[in-house]
Amino acid sequence: MDLNTINAIERPTSRDMLPTWRAGDAYLAGGTWLFSEPQNKLTRLIDLSTLGWEPLQANDKGLEIAATCTIAQLDTFSAPPAWIASPLIGQCCRAFLASFKIWNVATVGGNICMSLPAGPMISLTTALDGELLLWAPGSGQRRMRVADFVKGPVSNELRPGEIARAIHLPLAALTRRTAFRQVSLTNIGRSGALIIGTLDQKGAFVLTVTASTPKPYQFRFDALPGGNELTARIDSGIAGNWFDDIHGLPAWRRDMTLHFAREILAELGGGAR
């Protein structure tokens, strides 16, 4: 879609070339949502793709994902053999309601900052204890867990003029066993529930609930809980805050979440990978 209110496009090549933020600005990464509907309040775009960030950097501390890394780039990442959680990357990439054209343009940071309940990059980075690096206007920066960043549909902790620079996935999270479940009302529909379980080498269990709720929820246990205990924790923690839209009623989302939670518990408890 043409954005006919835009009268300027900035293409900085370094942080010190970023223009001063003003009303009517928007940062442009993939632009898959930005160009999908009218943006009548915008007058200037600031293109982040010209900053030249390395999409993926793996080291002994984990994986650094640039906010401008595309879904296609992330999906082709070849993880070290010890990173047994890495299959989760491909599973979450394929949870997108998106064509290959979107895959090659849409970015990891854009999906997180859009903060839709069904955003699978939110699911992935929350489940693997992802931490966002946020650049403030000028030279400041701060870090925040993705789980705390997303507040609800199209609502997050991003401040005016801030840029999502990168997402860090720690090594400890990448060496956990994982179990993944996702469902949509139709074969190519938006996720109605996306549930991920992780189990570390000491037996600590974490269940991450996304898509069925307006924001991510996590439930942590020092050891694998019983099925009834897990169900009770989910119900009390979410406290009826199930998402409700055309892609699924709250009662159905709750039922699928609890069903998947028990399946994940059985899978990780039984030793299957």
Rank of each mutant, 00 (worst) to 15 (best):
T175M: 14
T125L: 07
D129E: 05
V150I: 13
F149V: 02
V150D: 00
M121K: 07
R143Y: 04
Q182K: 15
A166T: 07
D148T: 05
A127M: 04
L128N: 01
I167F: 02
Q141D: 03
I167Y: 05
T175F: 07
G161T: 10
V154S: 08
P120D: 15
P170H: 00
E131W: 00
P153T: 12
F149P: 00
I167L: 07
A173I: 06
L124T: 13
L171S: 07
A147Y: 02
R143V: 02
E157G: 11
N156W: 04
T178M: 15
V183H: 14
A136E: 15
D148P: 03
V146I: 08
A147Q: 10
R145T: 02
S184W: 06
V146T: 06
A127Q: 04
S155W: 12
V146D: 02
R177I: 13
S123Y: 00
Q141N: 10
P160Q: 10
G130P: 02
T175G: 10
G138Y: 11
A173R: 03
P160T: 11
G161K: 12
L134G: 08
S139F: 09
A172S: 09
L158Q: 12
I167R: 02
L124Q: 08
R165C: 09
P170D: 01
K151C: 11
A136G: 11
M121S: 13
L133C: 03
R143K: 08
A164M: 13
G130Q: 00
R142S: 04
T175D: 09
P170K: 00
V183R: 15
S155F: 08
A147M: 03
T178N: 05
P120S: 14
G140N: 08
L171F: 04
W135Y: 08
S155K: 13
S139K: 15
V154K: 13
G140D: 10
P153V: 10
A166C: 01
S123W: 01
A179W: 09
L158I: 11
T125Q: 05
A166Q: 07
R143D: 00
T175N: 11
A173W: 06
Q182T: 14
E157S: 14
G140R: 08
W135V: 03
N156S: 10
R181S: 12
R181F: 12
R177Y: 09
V150F: 00
N156F: 05
V183W: 15
A136W: 03
W135G: 07
T125N: 04
R165P: 03
S139D: 13
Q182D: 14
E157W: 06
